[in-house]
Structures are given as C-alpha cells and as structure tokens.
Design a protein around this nucleic acid. Structure first.
Lengths: 133, 133
DNA sequence: GGAAGTACCTACTTTTTTGTAAGCTGGTGT
DNA sequence: ACACCAGCTTACAAAAAAGTAGGTACTTCC
C-alpha cells in the first residue's frame, strides 16, 4: 500500500463523522499512553518479571505498573505467566499480537527520536517569540 | 533499517535508565494524545479552518481544539495562517515536519484498524473469564 | 443601537489520572 | 511466633485533564 493511500485510510479511520463512538479510541489511548509505550518497549527486549520492569521503566509506581500490565493483558498484548514457586514469580512477555504492534509503535517512537531536536527547537523559538511579541 | 534493529533502537530510546528525564516524553504524550492524533489526522486531508476542524473532529470542545492546536503549533507540527479579512479567517495546516509525522502515526492508527477486532475480542474473553473465575 | 459572525479565552466544575503509603498472601528460614 | 520475600491491592489524597458556560474583539449588516 502506497503511503499516500495509507494516510488516507488512517484519516478515514479516526475522523469518521461520528468518531466519538469509535470503540478503538479507548484502547488506543490506553495503549499509546505514557506508561504503556514504555512497558511495551521494555518487553520488546524479552520477558521480564514485575520487579525487573519496575526497575527498567524507572519512575513508575507499583500501582501504575500493575494497572497498565493488567490493561495490556486484557487487550491480549502481553501474556502473564505465573510460576508456582514461592514466592510466586510472575513473568510478562509480549504476545504475538503485542509483537506485531511493536513495529508501528517503534516506528512512531523512532520518529520522535529523529525529530526530537526539531520539536524542542520549535518550542523554544515559539516561546521566545511570544515573550516579546 | 531492518525492523528488528528499529525495534531495538526504539527500546533504547525510551527505556534508557533515566528515561524519567527524557525531554521527549511530554511532547510525545501531547502529540499522541486523543485529540492531537485526531486533529493531525484531519489535517492530513489538507488545510482546515477552525470551525471546519471543530465539525470534523466531532466531540471536541472549542477549548480543547484551540488548546491542542496551539500546542501543535508550538512544536512546529502545524502552521497557523491568519488572513486579514473580516471576520479574520485562520487556516491550519500541517508543516513539513507535521507531514513527516503523518507516516508513522498513520502506521500506528492503521495497526489499530487492522487489529481492533482482536483487541476487542481479547477484552471480552478476559472479562468473561474474570467474571466466573 | 443592536445582532451576528469568527476565533478564541477565562473562570469554574467535574472527571480522570497519578502518586503515596500501607496492607495482604502464603510459604520459608530462625 | 515472627519477619521476610514477591507481587500485588486498597484507601486516601493530590494533581492534571477535560467539559461547561460565558465573555472578548472587531467589524459589518440591518
């Protein structure tokens, strides 16, 4: 599919007249949220235990981590495996669906990586112009 | 760049040890927010006036629209052109930077379009399992 | 003089999200 | 008997985001 066409498709997908009712919106919001993107990114590197993720994502609270993990598991993006050891060990990994999401998601993240400087520069310029304007 | 490599890069980009301080996080949050994605999607179809966007995005309040538009303009993703007619007409369009974002963004949106059913199905299954558990 | 149109902005309120801190579970070492 | 471990969950509080209702500025039309 040509990029132009893809763009047109996406445009139609979300800006449909009554997009208010689009059932995908909540899922997309949840999946592209600040913590979810980070958790998914971390899991791209392979399965992780709860504490490992907590350390790796740095800055997230236990509550947010378990909350996001639960939501991602609910949507079938991550798998939760409990080993009946003691204390029980819980391992999280991306499902096949989750892996397929990784491509588009990292494409977006990569764009921010490549253009971050431009964005920051634009903001600074905008702010300085408003300051004296 | 191979997809595997791209994934690894993205992973490093956001899950850096001190990603807490990553200056891109706020911008990415803002740019991938519920309204921003919709506004950008709408603008992919060409320049729009304020009222047109308001109608097209359906469900957004004037406040949110102008707030998001301002934020996107600040980051250099959309251009704001004022025509000195009366009443003044303000036209919004994607900048070159904004256009370059459209690709990755629609890639993601497209993924949700393709896999939306699976996500919804997974959620229903999850919910019914928890119900009787 | 008063209404109408465009593109906002402001104050106020409600809703949602996030953080903090504490508690729970269930087996294990002491 | 008691604290400890991992991996949560809960109650409470604070902060952020979003919605609502109204107002502003300027000008043209009646």
């Amino acid at each position: 599919m040509a990029e132009t066409e893809q763009v047109a498709t996406a445009s139609r997908l979300l800006t449909h007249d009554t997009f208010d009712k689009c059932p995908l919106r909540p899922i997309m919001d949840q999946t592209t949220s600040r913590w979810a993107t980070l958790i998914i990114s971390a899991l791209i590197g392979g399965p992780h235990r709860f504490a490992q993720l907590h350390a790796r994502v740095g800055g997230i609270s236990q509550k947010m981590l378990s909350q996001n993990l639960k939501a991602l598991a609910r949507s079938g993006l991550v798998a939760r495996d409990v080993a009946p050891t003691n204390p029980p060990q819980v391992t999280y990994s991306l499902t096949e669906l989750g892996v397929s999401l990784a491509g588009p998601l990292t494409g977006l993240i990569g764009w921010f990586g490549r253009h971050g400087d431009e964005l920051l520069a634009a903001q600074q310029q905008y702010d300085s112009q408003s300051a004296d304007g």
